[in-house]
Amino acid sequence: MHGEFKVPGGKLVVVDLDVRDGALADVRLSGDFFLEPDDALPLIDAALTGLPVASDAKTIAAAVTAALPEGAILLGFSAEAVATAVRRALQRATSWDDYRWELVQPGPLSPLMHLALDQVLAEEVGEGRRAPTLRFWEWASPAVVIGSFQSVKNEVDADNAERYGFPVVRRISGGGAMFIEPAGAVTYSLYAPVDLVQGMTFADSYAFLDEWAVQGLKSLGIDASYVPLNDIASPSGKIGGAAQKRLGNGGVLHHVTMAYDMDGDRMAEVLRIGREKLSDKGTTSAAKRVDPLRSQTGLDRAEIIDRLVDTFRSAHGLVEGALTADELARAEQLVAEKFDTPAWLHRVP
């Protein structure tokens, strides 16, 4: 059996193995990574040989770590990356090319409808009723979108939000608040089976799922990179942030909002961004932290989205898709029963 995993921003990890009597046998790790000392490689192979085929990623990674001699150096890969390659060899993880990806661009929708669709489409993919999907958003109106675990009163100046026409809505993923001006944001969602990120830590999966977007930005001349845990940035500042939600039915929602253009002064009036949050960012201004795509590229927003779509298509394949009537109806129901209710919005006081 053969498994491969390209570490985002790192190296290729390859595992070849046999299976005998329900256990890994003749495990052979290889790749273009760097490993010191040299004799650590056969130690890893020996540690993996004999593990039960049902071992989860945590168990496999722990075996790799325990086998390493004191002072060993792994460059371009990690114990978790080895675990992912092993699980792919055992066909317990998948790759981008195992799926037929669909592109959905339904046009302008309300913020509440966007959030409801995120839940619906992630559920549909998890249940196997929808192919893995890339959806680009068009915002019909401004909004402040807060994370699942954020406090409304701590994150938003309610008076200014109302004064300037920024209703507050809550998404199902964690992370921080997003200040959305329809013409100033580039937002996309990925809906994927959990097998695509099987064996990866949350930190690794963020970079893995957005690597194509970083490459798309680089093709526009932006010196873009992924900054753990969940930021896409350039040397001039943050470009965007990601959030993720893994559903119990096997679906994964991963979405990103990047700043195309931004009224930083207005954002600072609407969002309560405290000094503590900025204390590790090297700046005292939230507006100065963000480096919009418009100023970096000079391109129209639509041109940037087209380039991102083309990049994904070249890397992973992409066919045109559409939302179904049932998906839209379920999203509308979720808006009424969940996302547009005080109980959901203020679930964290």
Rank of each mutant, 00 (worst) to 15 (best):
N249L: 04
A322N: 07
L115E: 12
E138G: 11
K238R: 08
F208K: 05
A143G: 11
T284C: 04
A343F: 12
F339K: 00
G251E: 04
A192V: 04
E4L: 08
D261I: 11
P193Y: 03
A207V: 01
A233M: 03
R275A: 15
I222F: 00
D16K: 14
L41W: 10
V13W: 11
V104K: 02
L90N: 10
S205K: 01
A72I: 02
L103W: 00
F34V: 15
N249A: 05
K6Q: 15
I305C: 03
H255N: 04
T187W: 08
G176N: 11
E127Q: 09
M267W: 01
M1W: 12
V348N: 11
S285H: 08
A331Q: 02
N154F: 12
L345A: 01
V64E: 00
A185I: 15
S110P: 00
N249F: 01
V169T: 13
D263C: 05
A183C: 10
E127A: 15
E320Y: 11
A315N: 10
V86M: 09
L29D: 05
W101M: 01
V290Q: 01
E332S: 07
R171I: 03
E269H: 08
E332V: 00
D291H: 14
R313M: 11
A79W: 08
A93N: 03
L117W: 05
R171Y: 11
K238A: 13
N230A: 07
D98M: 05
A67E: 09
G317R: 07
L134Y: 04
P342M: 10
L253C: 02
A63W: 01
E276F: 05
P167C: 03
D306H: 05
K288W: 06
S141N: 06
L308I: 10
D97I: 10
P235Q: 08
E138N: 13
P111H: 05
K338A: 08
A46P: 10
P132N: 07
P193C: 02
L109S: 12
Q244I: 03
G3R: 12
A61I: 12
A40Q: 10
I304R: 09
K11C: 01
L41S: 09
L24F: 09
V145D: 09
T59Y: 08
A243E: 00
E320I: 09
H346E: 00
A85S: 04
G250Q: 03
R100T: 14
A325W: 08
R266T: 07
Q333F: 02
E162L: 11
P69F: 06
D97T: 15
G50H: 06
G165H: 03
G9M: 05
A143W: 14
Y226K: 12
P235H: 06
P37C: 05
A183P: 12
Q333P: 01
A177M: 13
L109G: 09
A158I: 15
R266P: 03
R266V: 06
A89P: 02
D306S: 14
D159R: 14
V152F: 06
P106E: 06
T187N: 09
Y260R: 04
D204W: 07
Y226R: 05
L293T: 10
R313S: 15
D195A: 15
V186T: 11
V186S: 06
L323K: 02
A185H: 08
S219W: 09
V290M: 04
T311C: 03
Q198W: 10
E4H: 12
N160I: 08
N249M: 07
A192I: 00
A93D: 01
